[in-house]
Design a protein around this nucleic acid. Structure first.
Lengths: 141, 141
DNA sequence: ATCGTTGCAAAATATTTGCAGTTGA
DNA sequence: TCAACTGCAAATATTTTGCAACGAT
């Protein structure tokens, strides 16, 4: 169970709790429709509208990571906001998670520049782009 | 004028040329609708369908950078594929270009890992996330 | 002349929204 | 209690597609 610290007035509903838990547990990138399908198992009554509304809400509050989606078809969500490293094939659109592949996380000290400008940096997403092994093979044929 | 090196059979049309030039000249992130509006100045007859088709085409060929869009509303395109560094405010969705801010480009030697796996890495996008100065001010109120 | 590309318009998808009923704090 | 939510369904917005005409090689 993830803990949410919501601003005064906003409510922690079952729908939000389950959506967030689900996103975090699955550790992958989901479109709104996929989140809907997934969450429906525990909340058969939930509506797509609610999923959209809550994704925006969680995103605004910083609980759900941006959307990402490089050459991906649809907007996607994931349950982590701090940092992520991905490799995305521009041909097949497949996303390879590099979290474990890359030794050590990217900690750019250049961030100090942005901090000095007065922004608050909370995390980052690194998207490496190119062509994956499998698509390279097909191209060469 | 950007030079395109298209695969045999594919054509370099005025529409594609102008779209690419425009995307590169503007050096910013545009939705398909924005590209359409922008390109229309030079090509009043162009249709939205063509813009969508060509964005996908240019993207697949590697001429137009992925889509990006972190906490952005709609899919966005930009004219560079090699590397980009952005800071995105999760509240107002504004995108700050860090290209000039960050001294030196991010050249992760960890990329060797992916190369060893057989993938071809062509570029990267770094998205720093957080809350911008202006939104921070409003929050504190 | 051929065949990839285009504009147009319709179809398919995806996202947002109004509203009346529900529910968390 | 009661304003913040939700489900539902209708309204919008976005993206894709079929097709006949066009145009680059």
């Amino acid at each position: 169970m993830s803990v949410l610290n919501l601003p005064k007035g906003r409510r922690l509903t079952r729908q939000r709790q389950i959506m967030l838990d689900d996103l975090r547990k699955r550790r992958c990138h989901l479109t709104a429709a996929e989140v809907y399908q997934s969450v429906k198992k525990k909340l058969p009554q939930i509506s797509l509208g609610t999923v959209y509304r809550n994704l925006k809400f969680l995103q605004k509050e910083g609980y759900v990571a941006g959307i990402l989606c490089n050459p991906c078809e649809a907007e996607q969500f994931e349950g982590f906001t701090d940092h992520c490293q991905h490799f995305i094939c521009r041909i097949c659109k497949k996303v390879f998670d590099c979290q474990k592949s890359l030794p050590g996380n990217f900690k750019p000290k250049e961030l100090n520049y942005l901090k000095a400008e007065g922004h608050r940096i909370e995390g980052y997403h690194l998207y490496l782009t190119g062509i994956c092994k499998s698509c390279l093979k097909k191209t060469k044929k």
